[in-house]
Computed example of a mutant assay.
Amino acid sequence: MGSRKAARDEEFRRFVDAVWPRLVRTAYLLAGDRHTAEDLAQQSLERAYVAWGRVAQADDPYAYVRRILVNEQARRHRRKAPERLVDAVPDRAEPAGPERLDRLDDRASLLAALAQLPPRQRQSVVLRYWEDLSETQAAALMGCSVGTVKSQASKGLAKLRNAAALHGLAATTAGEGRVR
Rank of each mutant, 00 (worst) to 15 (best):
S154D: 07
P90D: 07
A140I: 06
E10P: 05
R178G: 03
P61N: 00
F12V: 03
A108S: 14
D17N: 05
R54T: 13
H77C: 13
R54M: 06
S44T: 02
Q137V: 03
E11G: 07
L111Q: 05
K80M: 15
V179W: 09
R25L: 05
L127N: 00
H167E: 08
M1L: 14
W130D: 10
A93H: 11
A164F: 11
L111D: 11
A163G: 03
A139R: 00
A170Q: 14
V55K: 01
M142K: 05
Y49W: 08
D132C: 15
P119N: 11
L104R: 12
R25C: 08
R22F: 04
R100V: 09
Q121S: 06
H167S: 08
T36S: 03
R178K: 11
A171G: 09
H35W: 13
Q43P: 03
A174H: 15
K159G: 05
R120A: 15
E46V: 13
K80T: 07
V86E: 04
L101M: 08
G2S: 13
Q42M: 13
A41Y: 00
V65A: 01
R178L: 04
L166D: 03
D33C: 14
A31N: 05
T148R: 12
Y49G: 00
F15S: 00
V16C: 11
K80R: 09
P21K: 14
R178P: 01
A58V: 00
H77L: 09
A63L: 10
Y62Q: 01
A115G: 12
N71G: 15
V50L: 08
M1R: 10
L127R: 00
A108F: 06
S145M: 12
A153F: 03
V146L: 10
G168Q: 10
P61A: 00
L127D: 02
L141E: 06
D9C: 04
L157Q: 07
A139V: 02
T36Y: 09
D9H: 02
W130Y: 06
L69S: 07
R22I: 01
Q57N: 09
G156Y: 13
A56I: 06
S151I: 12
R128N: 06
A31Q: 07
L111Y: 13
A170R: 08
L110F: 15
K80E: 12
P119E: 00
P118H: 08
R25Q: 08
Q43H: 14
A140N: 06
N71F: 15
G175P: 07
A96F: 06
A138C: 06
M1V: 10
L85S: 06
S124G: 15
L133G: 07
T136K: 09
R47G: 15
F12P: 02
D33S: 13
H77V: 07
A6R: 08
H77N: 05
D102M: 03
L117V: 10
R34S: 09
V86K: 01
I68P: 00
L29D: 09
Y64F: 04
R22Q: 14
E94R: 14
K150S: 14
L117D: 01
P90H: 12
Q123R: 13
E176T: 11
R100K: 15
C144H: 08
R120V: 10
A115W: 12
F15T: 00
Q73K: 10
C144M: 12
S145P: 09
L45P: 01
R8F: 02
D33T: 04
T26C: 04
R25T: 05
